[in-house]
Write a protein that binds this DNA or RNA. Structure first.
Lengths: 212, 212
DNA sequence: ATATGGTTTAACCATTTTGTTAATTGCAAA
DNA sequence: TTTGCAATTAACAAAATGGTTAAACCATAT
């Protein structure tokens, strides 16, 4: 017998499973695997704690689901580097736009991933292998090609990547601190910071560092 | 009766209280207040769990002590901006040297502080008030003075501060990720990254951004 | 109407974790 | 040597937390 339409699993809307996943994302991002409390997740989702186990069996499995989703989205951002039709700088600019919009939506993401790598490098390795499938992490590779064919200046590609990631992700991660710190100096985070400004600032950095 | 010398509180050396505080710092930095386990702290310090309560009464009070210490050291780094005898750039370069060495020693510090601000803005406000006493947070103030008297280029001071903090603290925070990511691209974190390189890189950024 | 089966809940249980207590150790003053 | 007191410990109690169960709920098919 076929189930009626409104009883089928409806992910993406406000089905219970989705509510739980959203709540879990929020709480896990804030407190990590150890620090998160099942009751806290249940309260955030507005449901009974037993339902968490009904849908996800246990805490670790739930965490895995959240983490896998986060990781997949994270790696999607790297796809642009595989597009060899575009110039190195063009690819970098697109990446900057995408990754900053991504972090604006998931400010805790990088910390979440960093913590997980630290806690469990082996499992992470395996997950990444699944997540990226046949894609490759090409940022550095693309840079070094660009240097060889004279498209960009000769730079320290590893340090460039580190600087770039720092500029793009830390502002969102540290927004509570910046909010506070700016207010103490007579500035206003909401006014003085936004994604568009940051994009421009990072692009300036890239232009200065790679431009010939 | 006066206590014998070797029985007086000896902070700064390997007294029990200090051992506990060091262990607590390590564990709290790694897992946060919720995620940290008292037993884990006791094991790390190599003492009985009951001693933790003997010295610090309970988990929260212990956490407070650790956090207060962290905060004080963090704010110390800002003192250099009060030295009006030095040029703006000179002060920035000194700050960069200091803060990067600081983060090299306490890589989790910024995250620790960020999380705390997020969890409890009011208490943080109060703590900062104590920590900075009559000092003032001057980075932005110093920059705007420098712009007025033509010492540096006219820039967006808030964004500059955000970029600067990002470049200095994120690499340490995210080192597990960078280690992993670089390895996947045929590089080696230990070889390709060190504090001196980072200092130089950040100074280049400052020179480019502020230099006339 | 009633039966069916997925969904949701309150009330538990088992384990982990925080916190306490009473006894022991070790060291210095008398 | 004995006494006193802080430091330390093992064992225990209390609270918090993850996980289970059996019953209630509710929409639909018969």
């Amino acid at each position: 017998m076929v189930k009626p339409y409104n009883q089928m699993k409806q992910l993406g809307d406000n089905s219970t499973e989705e509510k739980i996943l959203d709540a879990a994302k929020e709480v896990f991002m804030k407190h990590g695997l150890y620090g998160a409390r099942m009751q806290d997740i249940a309260d955030t989702a507005g449901i009974n704690k037993a339902l968490l186990h009904y849908y996800f069996r246990n805490k670790e499995k739930m965490f895995d689901k959240v983490f896998d989703g986060a990781l997949a989205k994270f790696f999607e951002q790297l796809d642009v580097f595989s597009n060899n039709e575009l110039s190195v700088k063009k690819r970098l600019f697109i990446y900057i736009d995408n990754i900053i919009e991504f972090y604006a939506e998931y400010p805790q993401m990088s910390m979440f991933i960093i913590k997980e790598i630290g806690n469990n490098p082996e499992i992470f390795k395996e997950k990444v292998h699944v997540a990226k499938k046949n894609k490759t992490l090409r940022l550095i590779h693309v840079l070094e090609d660009g240097m060889k064919n004279g498209e960009i200046k000769k730079i320290d590609s590893a340090m460039f990547m580190i600087n770039l990631q720092s500029l793009c992700s830390f502002p969102f991660l540290a927004s509570p601190m910046f909010k506070y710190s700016l207010k103490a100096q007579g500035k206003d985070w909401e006014k003085d910071f936004n994604s568009e400004k940051l994009k421009q600032s990072v692009k300036n950095f890239v232009e200065f560092t790679l431009g010939k």
